[in-house]
């Protein structure tokens, strides 16, 4: 179990804010367990594609099937856990 305040969590939030142009949102406004899509942060399917690019670019993880993203991108926690397990860089 990685700490919820790990560097990875913070790093992820910062890259999500940058990559998805969420300029009005601060790091601490994104909760670790809050849903990223739908009612939570309110991301959409275009953002999901951007997150796939982010995984590959920053962590060397290639997702070939966009459908896979659904579970991985549930929250910052699920993303961080997936990255910890699969990262190649």
């Amino acid at each position: 179990m990685i700490s919820p305040m790990s560097d990875l969590h913070i790093e992820l939030k910062a890259s999500i804010i940058e990559q998805l142009n969420l300029e009005d949102i601060n790091l601490d406004e994104i909760e670790n367990d809050e849903p990223l899509f739908g009612d939570g942060l309110g991301l959409d399917s275009i953002d999901a594609l951007e997150l796939i690019v982010l995984l590959e670019k920053d962590y060397g993880i290639k997702l070939n099937d966009p459908q896979q993203g659904k579970e991985i991108f549930n929250s910052i926690n699920t993303m961080a856990a997936f990255i910890e397990k699969n990262r190649t860089k």
Binding site: I46, L49, E50, V53, K57
Partner: peptide, 9 residues
């Protein structure tokens, strides 16, 4: 290379 799709869309 690896491209982010938003601007294409």
């Amino acid at each position: 290379g690896l491209l982010s799709p938003t601007s294409f869309i």
